[in-house]
Nucleic acid binder design. Structure first.
Lengths: 147, 147
DNA sequence: CTAAGTGCAAACACTTTGCACTTAA
DNA sequence: TTAAGTGCAAAGTGTTTGCACTTAG
């Protein structure tokens, strides 16, 4: 649940208003958290974090805001079998390296991600987004297992 | 819900028994359907199809069987926001070209899929599976929209 | 024979919705 | 001022589970 140093709050407010959405304090807080987080939080994790500053925020509002952000293509919802959805604000093509042991999701900026998008285009597909998950064991867990 | 001409029934029975599972008629039927289908059926679609020949099969059994097949890594469950999960029996690296208009999922065998797996390996990740979704508009829908 | 599997219905967990209250614009 | 948004609780939906019955091995 890390945050990047400066959150572009004015930008968020503008983005919401331009699309006809009101810039409520809840939406701004949730948007700022999600758009600046480097990990892949669940709705519940987001809600708990937001409540540290806005104690009355409901989980329903978190879900509604995440739907707005998904609609604006600022955030992507990653559904998993058995588990809650995680929300990812990195919209550029990238790989999600998902460890099946510790559950961590690491991003990778490898150019193979762009190659996938190009390949889809070559098939006559007009690409608007992507989800490139690789499942397995992360380096940390591999080491832990062998020790 | 297409099927390939010949279903490797004996192979399915062996695979189940080797792993300590009983080869019941329900499991064989469900496995054969899923493992030979070229599209990406949901549990309910599978259940309806199976009931044409085995009218008493329950949705619970379909889900349980799909879990067994997932555990054997013969099938992958693709979860989506808002929608039922689809089940994919193509386990080799490939792209899922998912049309946001008609909902169709087309597979693509492009080598970019293998490049993704290699890239993950380069990062010290031990790959055991992948899900490479590309979202957008398929050629058919693009044409329909422009006409 | 007997432990594993099935089918039904009930339970579950995550997510969405209805509605009265609040608030941005 | 007033339509959009919030927060609560209730409803919804796909999936899982408990349990008595059935069946593969």
């Amino acid at each position: 649940m890390n945050s990047r140093p400066s959150a572009p709050e004015a930008t968020i407010i503008q983005a919401l208003r331009n699309k006809g959405y009101r810039a409520t304090s809840q939406r701004i807080a949730i948007s700022r958290l999600v758009l600046t987080s480097r990990d892949h939080p669940t709705a519940l994790q987001i809600c708990k974090k937001i409540r540290e500053a806005h104690p009355t925020v409901s989980l329903a509002t978190v879900y509604k805001t995440l739907q707005v952000l998904s609609g604006l293509r600022l955030v992507q919802e990653l559904s998993f079998p058995d588990a809650e959805a995680k929300f990812d604000s990195r919209m550029k093509p990238h790989l999600n390296l998902i460890c099946e042991q510790c559950g961590n999701v690491a991003d990778s900026e490898d150019r193979a991600a762009d190659a996938v998008v190009k390949a889809a285009g070559r098939e006559g597909f007009r690409v608007s987004g992507q989800r490139l998950d690789v499942y397995g064991l992360c380096e940390k867990c591999l080491k832990k297992n062998s020790s």
